[in-house]
C-alpha cells in the first residue's frame, strides 16, 4: 500500500516530533510538521496531504475550517472533512485534544491507525506533562516543609525529627496537607518574627 502524506500542525514542537516519530515508525515516510500557520493554503497545496492532524489548543484551527470552504469554492482538489463513520474514534480524539481532516474518499481503514497513533501519543504526552507538574509540586512542597522545620527548630528549640513530627501531627489533627501547615508556619513566621 502506498504510504500516505501526513501533515501535522502543532504549535508544541516537542509533541509534534513525538507524533512524527510514531508515524515514521508506522511506515509513513512523508510526514511534514508545521508549527506556524503562515501561508497555510499555499503550504497545503504544495504538500498535498492525505491527512491533516491538528492539536485542539491551536487557535488557528478555524483557519483550516475556512480553508476547506474556500478551496471547495475554488474547486481545488483538497476538499477535506473529518471522517464521521467512526464517531467513537473522533470522540477519543477530541478527548485527547487532537483532531484530523482527511482527504475526501480516503478509506477509513487507512486513516484509523494514523489517528489512533496520534490519540495515543497525545494522551501519553498529556500524562507526561501531568507527571512533570506533579513532580514540580512535590519538590515545592518538600522545600516549604524544610523551611517550616527550620523555623520550628530555631524558634522552639526542637530537633529536626521533633519539628517534622509536630508538623505531621498538626496536619493530621487539622485534616490538612503537611505542606499547607508548613506554608502557614512560614507565613506566620514572616509576620511575627
Amino acid at each position: 500500500m502506498e504510504s500516505l502524506t501526513v501533515l501535522v500542525i502543532d504549535e508544541n514542537q516537542i509533541r509534534a516530533s513525538i507524533i512524527e516519530r510514531g508515524l515514521r515508525e508506522a511506515g509513513h515516510e512523508r510526514v511534514i510538521l508545521m508549527s506556524s500557520m503562515d501561508g497555510l493554503l499555499r503550504r497545503i497545496l504544495e504538500i498535498d496531504p492525505d491527512v491533516i492532524v491538528i492539536d485542539l489548543e491551536n487557535p488557528n484551527r478555524d483557519q483550516l475550517e475556512h480553508l476547506f470552504q474556500v478551496s471547495r469554492a475554488a474547486q481545488r482538489p483538497i476538499a477535506m472533512f473529518v471522517d464521521r463513520s467512526d464517531s467513537g474514534m473522533l470522540e477519543a480524539a477530541v478527548d485527547a485534544g487532537v483532531s484530523a481532516y482527511v482527504v475526501d474518499g480516503l478509506r477509513q481503514e487507512r486513516v484509523k491507525p494514523i489517528l489512533d497513533m496520534a490519540i495515543a501519543r497525545f494522551n501519553a504526552f498529556a500524562r507526561l506533562q501531568r507527571e512533570l507538574v506533579d513532580a514540580r509540586n512535590a519538590l515545592e512542597e518538600r522545600k516549604i516543609i524544610e523551611r517550616a522545620k527550620g523555623i520550628l527548630m530555631s524558634s522552639r528549640g526542637l530537633s529536626e525529627a521533633d519539628a517534622f513530627a509536630l508538623l505531621r501531627q498538626t496536619a493530621m489533627n487539622e485534616k490538612k496537607k503537611m505542606a499547607d501547615i508548613a506554608q502557614s508556619v512560614v507565613t506566620a513566621a514572616s509576620l511575627l518574627l
Binding site: R61, E65, V94
Partner: peptide
C-alpha cells in the same frame, strides 16, 4: 476555548 471548531466538536 480557542476556536469555534473546538466548541462545535466538544
Amino acid at each position: 476555548d480557542v476556536s469555534w471548531a473546538n466548541v462545535r466538536d466538544r
